[in-house]
């Protein structure tokens, strides 16, 4: 019951209260670029959710077993090579960012191969946007959050995956909302200097204002589950 409450809290936090796009400002490039039409926006949201989950799984594994201070694998290797050394001394955390970016690039490659094999028309409609997910801040941000909590020994695999998947869900919600609004905006008379990115930012600001209303849901849900 306790673990369920924790996971629910993390999920609601990642998707609504601290939405990746509208609170943390990550994932803005596709948010601006792909949100013109509803179906491409939804497709991009699903692709990002898929890639985030794969990348989070791989990066949690790397962080837990190799990269954090006191990680088992490098210490085991070092102590078998050098039996007289003090245990628990190896700290590979300085390589974290490099490992994460390569994990993300590999995840994008994996997802690309999977989509090309099993959903060819979808692959064609994505075009160049699928490899561009590598530079999507949202995925690296999720990996960094997971690293912060794994180093503090707070979170296990379940919590990390929940953050990743529901972070992607939150991104999808935001981009689909924006796409719906932009489709309507095309029928309006937007002032010429505001057309394009400027009006999208202003609309995103109003959306962010609306999402601020979700603040406090987490605390109250927790009270419901653990009275």
């Amino acid at each position: 019951m306790e673990i369920f409450a924790d996971l629910l809290l993390i999920a609601i936090g990642a998707a609504l209260v601290n939405n990746f796009v509208l609170t943390y400002f990550v994932g803005l490039c596709p948010f601006l670029g792909v949100s013109r039409r509803l179906d491409t926006a939804f497709g991009m949201g699903c692709a990002v959710t898929f890639v985030i989950s794969v990348a989070a799984l791989l990066s949690w594994t790397m962080t837990e077993f190799v990269l954090r201070p006191g990680a088992p694998l490098p210490n085991w290797v070092w102590s078998s090579l050098n039996p007289a050394a003090e245990t628990g001394q190896i700290d590979l955390s300085v390589l974290s960012y490099i490992v994460y970016i390569f994990v993300i690039a590999s995840s994008v490659q994996l997802v690309e191969m999977y989509v090309r094999k099993f959903f060819p028309p979808l692959y064609k409609s994505f075009g160049v946007f699928l490899p561009l997910i590598t530079t999507n801040c949202a995925i690296l941000f999720a990996c960094l959050e997971i690293m912060k909590h794994v180093v503090a020994r707070d979170w296990g695999l379940a919590e990390s995956l929940t953050l990743a998947i529901f972070g992607g869900v939150g991104f999808t919600i935001a981009i689909v909302l924006m796409a719906g609004i932009r489709e309507e905006l095309e029928l309006c008379e937007v002032p010429e200097s505001l057309r394009g990115a400027a009006i999208t930012m202003i609309v995103a600001g109003i959306l962010a204002l609306a999402f601020m209303g979700f603040s406090g849901i987490g605390a109250n849900v927790e009270k419901l589950i653990n009275p």
Partner: peptide, 19 residues
């Protein structure tokens, strides 16, 4: 200082720069 303000500020400044 809050997130909505960031979006609004950048949107307005982008509009100004374009104008």
């Amino acid at each position: 200082i809050l997130p909505p303000g960031a979006f609004l500020a950048l949107g307005s400044l982008l509009g100004l720069a374009t104008w």
